[in-house]
Design a protein around this nucleic acid. Structure first.
Lengths: 210, 210, 210, 210
DNA sequence: AATGAATGAGAGTTCATTCAT
DNA sequence: CATGAATGAACTCTCATTCAT
């Protein structure tokens, strides 16, 4: 369909943003915000420095776009599923959501964004607020609704749903953070075993019944 | 408390490295490694940019010194206490250690080190390994010994001590990280309520006994 | 007025260079050569950036074309009129020419060219020389011929016609320059009042006492 | 007093701003704002690019500083002299001021700023306003006060002082503009002859017949 | 003829590091 | 010891110009 002699623009405008976002995600995640050079992002996406600026206004906007691009769809789908799962036991639903979070986000490259946000929240309060509203709050609301339902139905102990939600999400978040901080240099955590242990604890606690 | 034989400026001189390390810790924690300007560190310590180089070879060495300097002896004391607390119930001991960690480290300025390490471990593998050995591993060993003892004595459910240790420490670690990332711009977490909820869950889980 | 044999887009095509020149004049006048972006010129002319290069080799050539294109035939007509006005009093003729200059050029958009040339003459000596020959010199010759005639006929004081010509044109030129520099941000000058004051001074200062 | 082996900083901090301002004036004047590279300014001042930023926040601030540095003192002194010259004839005073303006500003390198302001007023409305207030308005007020006094005393024809002031300053301003636009490529104007012609015209045109 | 995606040299700006004083 | 002026490499961002479509 096309001669291969001078493929100056092999790819299409439509694909560029995604290619750039993918490249940016990779580099931001493993070098951090400041250490990521836009020229490297461009090169990894197979374009030149200037091209990047056709699609993103500046480095900060690129960063925001990466954050947006890697979190919205996942949360959106999860919200729908939870709303539809009224008949499932809350315990089952909670376990399913936490495992799904792991499978869909935490075990993927996108988990690096969590570390990135922890690292850069101080430098980008605006993005931190954005991430808090679009990711953390929505995630908490999702888990929180399950906890609340479970408490109301008498499936769960009578706990403070807000706090319990933070507690419930913390270990999975830590799994994400380890993956992009200590794991690479101090050996990886066995995530499956960790999750099993964690979900077991959630279900029944540490104390041995007498 | 301090000998008065030395003239004032010499006493100042001895304090310089500590003042610089303190200033550097604050800024590294707030802004991350790359975004921290040495000029700001110097100014905060009340000296000039050039003076900093009399005490630290370069930015990287300063960073390493900050990490090394802030690995305090808290763990050492805790290790002794745990070894001595043979008669205490493991449940009590575990709760005590987690609360103590919170009180002595996580709620203090030193907690910033945790965020710093999570943020920069990828860029400083060597120092991450060092931190892992001196802090994380020792902390895990400490908590792990309690868990193992509890399991052996039949106080705790038969869990994998290694994994359970990671699980047990994760929420408190998250509390430290939040304090230096999202808290400043998205409102603080109520740490006391969080800890209570967390320790409650650890003891008995979510499921309501029938 | 225009043949309808050509289809619409071809008529458009013929108009393109003029549309581009008009857009370029506006922007060059407002922002100067360097600060004018070719993309803005193209957009203002309703075409794409690439199209501009079909008509002009590069930015410099566009600039030169703008200057050349805007050197209108006004002077030519004025030259004829002056030659024909042998019987008019030189004072009347001089006043008429200065007012006409104002009415036909200085008060119109074309006056921007003067500002542009003052601003960019240093960077484009070649085009400055061209402008000098085609506009300034001819304009000076025109006014100069009236002055010389007036002096010869004893209507005017015995002045140096060359110098007096420069003097006579300066205030009207300034009016043109103000219109495209300070007027937009510091409020416009009342041109009519200015001209009246100016011509009054000229009349009293030029006329030979009887 | 000082060995000449390693004269890394030959000049003092105190002298730097002036050296940089002088270099910047030269380059801004003959290349225009945009075409002046800060590296060239620095090199001409004998320092490196970075040093420039120790003294001026950015290019725009440097530009403003150049404008400020080259106009204030002159106008200030003239204001004092005019206020003190109450007994001089207004005609004499006016001629003296115009000649002095020529001698102190218009014939010097600083006159390039007038051209620069005309060229860049559109791009820097803020500086244009500043220049208008600090230079043009003050200059006009100065000349205007002489005109008004002359009219009141019956030395001058009954003219509108505001307008006449603009008229009176226009030719000298044009002299400044020519010097930095057409003169270099089309041959210089004989400023002395021009001024004589101009002042002659002014004298005859302003003086009230007895 | 027209488009607009792509390029890459070039300019402004920052900051770790040096060193004469 | 302490200073802070000076440096220059490195990075972000711009825009004239090209060229496949």
């Amino acid at each position: 369909m096309q001669s291969d002699t001078k493929p100056r623009w092999e790819r299409r405008k439509d694909a560029r943003p995604q290619e750039l976002l993918a490249a940016a995600l990779d580099l931001f995640v493993d070098r951090g915000y400041a250490a990521t050079r836009l020229e490297d992002v461009a090169r990894r996406a197979g374009v030149s420095k200037g091209t990047l600026y056709l699609y993103f206004e500046n480095k900060e906007e690129l960063f925001k776009a990466v954050v947006r691009d890697n979190i919205v769809a996942v949360i959106g789908r999860a919200e729908i599923d939870v709303a539809a799962a009224d008949s499932t036991s809350c315990n089952e639903l909670l376990r399913a959501m936490l495992r799904r979070w792991w499978a869909d986000v935490a075990s993927t490259r996108a988990s690096g964004l969590a570390k990135l946000m922890v690292a850069e929240a101080g430098n980008f309060p605006e993005i931190a607020r954005f991430y808090n509203e679009e990711v953390i709050s929505r995630g908490h609301a999702l888990i929180g609704s399950i906890v609340r339902r479970g408490v109301e139905r008498g499936e769960f102990m009578p706990v403070d749903p807000e706090m319990m939600t933070r507690v419930l999400t913390a270990p999975v978040t830590m799994l994400m953070l380890w993956a992009h901080s200590f794991d690479p240099c101090c050996g990886p955590v066995d995530a499956e075993a960790f999750l099993d242990t964690w979900l077991g604890l959630v279900e029944r606690g540490m104390a041995r019944p007498v």
